[in-house]
Computed example of a mutant assay.
Amino acid sequence: MTDFVKRTWCEINLDHIQYNIDLIQKTAQKEVIAVVKADAYGHGDKYVCRELARAGVKWFAVSGISEALVLRKEGFRQNILILGYTPPDCAEALSDNNITQAVYDLDYAVALDQALRETGKTVNIHVKVDTGMHRIGFEQSEAHSAAREIVKVAALPSFRTTGIFTHFCHSDSFDLSAICYTKEQMHRLDTVIRELKAYGVSFEMVHAQNSAGIICYPDDEYNYVRAGIILYGLAPSDELEHMIAVKPAMSWKSIVTMVKTVQPGSAISYGRTYTAEKEMRLATVAIGYADGYSRLFSSKADVLIHGKRCRITGRVCMDQMMVDITDVPEVQIGDEVTLFGTDGEETISADELARIAGTINYEIVCNVGRRVPRIYLKDGKPVGVEDYLLG
């Protein structure tokens, strides 16, 4: 069950997933909607959802119907909320698989309702309100009220309107303007809920707090929260890195495939962007940007070998890269390389790589490629493998 091709792989600590959801539930003191879109942020939704189900999670959130149907195919009977768009011609699949759909626009709602009427089936929906992110949602602002449009949606015969939600766009900062903006978003959601109540429309579920909101705004009056990045042990932003004691679930490994000595003046990798100034020992490592390890790490990021930092030398290639092992003479072919994670007393975090690449930790873990097997650990021992290529 735990056999895999030992080229490059990720290790997912399921004990940390369990620890994180327990901590989130205690922190939020509300029902948790676990956001498992993008294959559980690259961690593998099948194994992650099993752990979350064991912890009593009753709701999963995904980005689209394909992700929802994968969970149903795996046998998960929990409620599933699609946060984004589902084509109207897939409306029957929503009903047949008991999937809740976000509805965020009147024209979209009418099209979805019409498709359902042709089948005679109904779907649960959560209404998405745009309180200031301006991505999707019924606009609620000083100049525009979402309530009248949402009333029309709630009246459509194919829908059971069970929830309402919004999304904070700047709740991951303690900057005063960010705090004021987030509180304004809450005020706008409260306003539309109050207006809808006057029209006789109410909701079983109200949710706004994302991972950052759970940390920074624990006292809102909504009855559900949506936990995303903190489920996987990563902070929503650098500012919040030490605000909740979650544990990273993913580490990323590879192996040394060749060891060589190069002379002064030797140009390393594509474009000759790195030239050896002295005699160096290099290790070739079996990973590249096709695995999701960004070319932006070229000559900037470190890896860990035998618990010591070794700098990438020259450009990251599609499937391989070179690192400087001059100060780690014991390195040999087959040695394990840690791209992020802990080896001995040293740790390289996804956040460290994100800062080098000018991005966020979300992108680092989500970008791990599908040719990289995920190895699942409990109590430090392998309990399963997800190999997307070999099955």
Rank of each mutant, 00 (worst) to 15 (best):
W9I: 08
E346P: 04
T257P: 05
S63Y: 15
T261C: 10
D45Y: 12
I136Q: 11
V70F: 14
V259N: 02
T162P: 05
V35P: 02
N367A: 09
L69S: 01
Q263A: 11
Y362F: 12
I125Y: 05
V337L: 07
T8H: 12
G56Q: 08
V127W: 06
K300T: 08
A53H: 09
N124E: 13
I255K: 07
G120Q: 00
V62C: 03
P373H: 03
A55L: 07
E277N: 13
I80A: 01
L23G: 00
S141F: 12
I99R: 03
D172S: 12
V110R: 11
W252I: 05
E139D: 14
E11T: 14
H242E: 15
Y270G: 06
K6M: 10
Y270Q: 12
V36L: 03
M243A: 14
D172E: 13
L52T: 07
D96T: 09
L83V: 09
L282Q: 02
T338R: 00
W252T: 01
F297T: 08
V32N: 05
V316H: 01
P329T: 05
E386K: 14
E74I: 01
P382G: 03
Y224P: 01
I268Y: 08
G314M: 05
K30D: 03
Y181I: 13
I150V: 11
A212Y: 07
Q101A: 15
I136D: 07
V32G: 01
D89E: 15
D351K: 12
A290P: 02
V383L: 09
S269M: 13
I215P: 02
E139A: 13
T326A: 01
T182K: 00
P87F: 06
G384H: 06
G137H: 07
R117I: 13
A286D: 14
K30E: 03
V383R: 10
E195A: 02
D319E: 11
V368G: 06
D3H: 13
N79L: 01
K253F: 12
A109Q: 07
I356Q: 05
N124D: 14
G271L: 10
A198S: 10
I348C: 00
S141N: 15
L189F: 07
S266R: 09
T257E: 12
A55P: 09
G369E: 05
A350T: 01
A91M: 02
C317D: 14
S66Y: 13
L296A: 15
I364L: 04
D22T: 15
S211V: 03
E204A: 07
V123G: 01
P88C: 04
D351P: 04
S266I: 04
H306T: 05
S269F: 10
Q332A: 11
D379Y: 12
K26I: 07
L106W: 06
G56N: 04
S237E: 08
V262T: 09
F159C: 01
R371H: 15
C310T: 08
V303Q: 10
G341E: 01
